[in-house]
């Protein structure tokens, strides 16, 4: 536990470093870009934490990526997508499931940029997400309390899940056009009944299918394309 706490301290320490970094780079806005130029940015992100989690878990794997586009007034349109699968192999319950998902929403930076090239941000936002889920046949066994075992198979089930997310996070430009950052997400499943009786233990992009709400996080590496549009 202590090593985890130490890691968390290091993590939090990084924010103070970032703040100092930005302070040291602060340049008056008038000195850098012409007033008529409107900065544009398209940023591609990939969740690297999923790769680590895939290595550590035998039950589930998933991949997530996304892109965000700067609109105006420190507001970004965001689209995210991914896929994943899970393998449940318990003594009394065995099935596989897989799904793809798409999320779309808006991120709003909480801080004004200190100079035109300042693309780092702390933000909040929301997402609407749709996932297409396919659960294969499930094999089960039950114990009747008298030592008897019954077994059977329940049919496969396909369905579409909808959920809503509130999110927040940070993006820090570590090197030119290269970002690292994280998101935390609070998710609210909108149509849990559509999953049927046997709800998948894991839905990529959402989490545990049995729960109506979920908490999740992402650690992103991102690369940005930038240009200026003159009006």
């Amino acid at each position: 536990m202590s090593k985890y706490s130490f890691s968390l301290l290091l993590f939090l320490l990084s924010f103070s470093c970032i703040a100092q970094d930005q302070d040291s780079l602060a340049v008056p806005a008038k000195a850098s870009a012409p007033a008529a130029a409107h900065p544009k940015q398209l940023r591609f992100s990939f969740d690297v934490a999923r790769i680590l989690m895939n290595r550590l878990s035998e039950q589930k794997s998933s991949y997530e990526g996304g892109l965000d586009y700067y609109l105006k007034n420190e507001t970004y349109f965001t689209a995210e997508f991914g896929s994943g699968n899970s393998v449940i192999d318990y003594p009394d319950l065995k099935y596989k499931s897989n799904n793809i998902f798409v999320r779309a929403g808006i991120d709003k930076s909480l801080f004004e940029r200190r100079y035109p090239q300042d693309w780092g941000m702390g933000f909040i936002g929301f997402r609407y997400a749709v996932g297409m889920i396919n659960r294969n046949e499930a094999a089960y066994t039950t114990n009747d309390g008298l030592g008897g075992i019954t077994s059977g198979i329940t049919p496969a089930h396909r369905f579409t899940a909808h959920w809503f997310e509130l999110t927040g996070g940070m993006r820090v430009e570590l090197f030119k056009n290269t970002f690292a950052g994280w998101n935390v997400r609070f998710k609210f499943l909108l149509n849990q009944k559509a999953m049927g009786e046997l709800k998948p233990a894991y839905i990529a992009g959402y989490g545990a299918g049995e729960k109506g709400t979920a908490f999740d996080y992402n650690f992103y590496l991102a690369f940005a394309l930038r240009w200026s549009a003159k009006h």
Partner: peptide, 28 residues
């Protein structure tokens, strides 16, 4: 100094990613 801070932030971020990943391995 700014570059040093960026590298340190990246290292801390990586440690945090590993930490969260290790805590999220699913067991029944």
């Amino acid at each position: 100094k700014a570059k040093c801070h960026s590298i340190l932030a990246g290292l801390c971020w990586s440690v945090a990613a590993v930490w969260f990943a290790a805590c999220n391995t699913a067991v029944r």
